[in-house]
């Protein structure tokens, strides 16, 4: 049976601590390149701060973790890649990026409406000797290729191996939890299989408080957001420059 992995991020629970960013970067061996700027760094998981522009008691703020939305339909980045370095894994619904195949043309980055793709502008570097502290499950990407969230595919891989070792075909869902989901101290990020009707996530995405960003583009993203606050839900489809105050991060 094929899965459709997705997420619901409850924005009412997000305190903007950044644990998801940190866990993601540590899991995926993101190099802390000293010279990278906010516009050339690697943040496959990026928490952004958005306010409603109000003052004093009218002021509201929300933190929005932005990552690859794993679009399901007409996935913008897949069709544009000239050498099939991007594909939607039919078995999982994960939009996969193959850094070894990528030539770094960055066409996929211009195609992504969520700006969730990152280019390795710099050579990956760590302080001397720190290779020992890198996650052995994830290969380091070289300079000049594009990368993005792959829902911690390495964890899915080890879960599959674990299942195979015991002769099972299906993985135990508890064995496959992406790093950001695991790290969130308020359990704001929920992960699950949208193809499974019994998965709590499948129920949650039907809640009236749940929304996705830019569904009007018709790409059917699999990362959902949730908020009880109407102004937050309105961010999903509102045009930029329509009054909200933003800050990168």
């Amino acid at each position: 049976m094929s899965a459709r992995y997705g997420m619901v991020i409850d924005l009412d629970r997000c305190t903007g601590c950044g644990a998801c960013m940190m866990a993601c970067a540590a899991e995926n061996n993101v190099p802390p390149v000293p010279r990278a700027t906010p516009r050339t760094g690697l943040t496959p998981m990026l928490v952004r701060k958005v306010s409603n522009g109000g003052e004093g008691v009218d002021r509201r703020e929300v933190f929005i973790p932005i990552m690859c939305m794993h679009c399901e339909r007409e996935t913008p980045c897949v069709g544009v890649c000239p050498q099939q370095a991007v594909e939607v894994d039919k078995a999982t619904g994960i939009v996969m990026q193959m850094p070894q195949r990528c030539l770094g043309c960055r066409y996929c980055m211009t195609a992504c409406p969520y700006h969730a793709r990152y280019f390795n502008w710099w050579d990956p570097q760590w302080p001397a000797g720190m290779e020992k502290a890198l996650n052995p499950g994830v290969a380091v990407r070289m300079r000049g290729v594009v990368e993005k969230c792959n829902l911690c595919h390495a964890r899915l891989h080890s879960a599959t191996q674990k299942a195979a070792a015991t002769g099972k075909r299906e993985i135990n869902p508890a064995d496959y939890v992406p790093a950001c989901v695991e790290a969130c101290p308020t359990a704001a990020i929920r992960f699950g299989n949208l193809a499974d009707k019994h998965d709590p996530l499948s129920l949650e995405v039907r809640s009236p408080d749940t929304f996705r960003f830019l569904t009007r583009l018709g790409t059917e993203p699999k990362v959902y957001y949730k908020s009880k606050e109407a102004w937050v839900r309105a961010l999903a489809e509102s045009n930029s420059g329509s009054g909200v105050e933003t800050k990168r991060g």
Partner: peptide, 9 residues
């Protein structure tokens, strides 16, 4: 041009 509501130009 921005795409998301909270993107900047």
């Amino acid at each position: 041009l921005p795409t998301l509501a909270f993107d900047e130009f």
